[in-house]
Write a protein that binds this DNA or RNA. Structure first.
Lengths: 207, 207
DNA sequence: GTAAAAATGTAGCAGATAGTACAATCTACT
DNA sequence: AGTAGATTGTACTATCTGCTACATTTTTAC
């Protein structure tokens, strides 16, 4: 009733399943999906082969679980900032969070969702659909924030929240790729600032 | 004298080497680097194992050759449009070319340079450096065009060509990723239009 | 408590993978 | 023509890959 395949899952079983997905997600994020073998996952998660194939019918299904996990992870991390997108200041705080977050691992490996999309969106239809939904939700938050700004009068009524949202998503993902390739965090700041400027020029005149 | 390793290369040898790289580039573009085996490349190029390992010491070296080939390919395709970036109209023609080009395979697999960057920039340093140079050259053309527009008076002197160029690159690559994931070509148009608008707001007043 | 079901351990297998060895053929250059 | 070196064909190997079979232990439900 709660899930599609209500195959009984013990608390212990659920825990190891989560450990497997977490280990797989980490490895696939840093090494790539194809470059991560099932044995790698087993070793990293401290489980056994029989366990992996008990909870997942094959590697593809494990990858799907990783995709869903990473979508939730990214949207979860973003949630507090996305909920704050009600003013231009909110968008600026969101920008700062992304720019800061891009230092460290995230700078070298990019957006956990975007990296997955880049590697498998062109080769696995169901994964593509899930990632599309992930991006769609993210974008939806952008649009929602912009519409709130229109309601409050901060953003002009003739601005197009949907197009601005798409532009923001592109800027974020393009920024991630540039940072990953150039190792220069400023790329993200510049990309996001350009997108934010597109919002700024559509702000109502006086403040 | 012409190359680093002036190992004698017959015309015939050069030809098969190119066939190998071309086949590898195609496969790695559509399937991914890691998902493409040396045997795949051999079959697709109509060569043999001894040939591949005669011209490349290992798979990594083949991948490096593919990286260089794809950089040249993309920059080569872009060249006529990049050279045309002397007016706002030039940027609009460039935009149209990208948007049109995104239909078909390119929409499903993204930018040949960007896809490679996404998969291996975080895991192979020399490949990352080459791809960084590729992006750098591309960006340089953007900046050059914008500086020409400043010289001609079309773009205001207080505009920052370097930052606009970074924003353009991010928009292109972000657009490619969104199109690949959503299968909606409009994402690219919207992303690029946002970037072009950032240039437009910096144009000199009268025309 | 006990039986069913879930969770885990151990062993192994068929095919793919990257890479090698070596012999045979072709090409360039004198 | 002939030789060195470039090119190519064939066969092979050691390891890794995803996956299965089956036995054992642990947990759940009555």
């Amino acid at each position: 009733m709660s899930e599609k395949k209500p195959r009984r899952l013990t608390a212990k079983g659920e825990a190891t399943r989560l450990r497997i997905v977490a280990a797989a997600a980490d490895l696939m994020y840093t090494q790539g999906v194809e470059a991560t073998s099932v044995d790698d996952v087993i070793e990293a998660s401290g489980t056994g082969k029989s366990q992996v194939y008990h909870y997942f019918s094959d590697k593809t299904e494990l990858v799907e679980a990783v995709v869903r996990a990473q979508i939730e992870r990214v949207l979860g991390e973003q949630a507090p900032f996305l909920d704050d997108l009600r003013t231009m200041r909110g968008f600026e705080r969101w920008r700062d969070a992304i720019v800061v977050g891009v230092r460290g691992w995230r700078g070298a490996h990019g957006c956990p969702m975007g990296s997955l999309a880049g590697e498998i969106a062109g080769r696995c239809e169901t994964a593509r659909e899930n990632l599309q939904r992930g991006f769609s939700v993210w974008q939806h938050w952008f649009r929602l924030g912009l519409e709130r700004m229109q309601d409050s009068g901060e953003l002009r009524p003739d601005a197009d929240p949907e197009e601005l949202a798409v532009g923001l998503m592109a800027a974020v993902q393009g920024g991630y790729l540039l940072v990953k390739t150039t190792r220069d965090e400023r790329s993200m700041a510049i990309a996001l600032d350009m997108a934010l400027d597109s919002i700024r020029v559509a702000l109502s005149a006086a403040e």
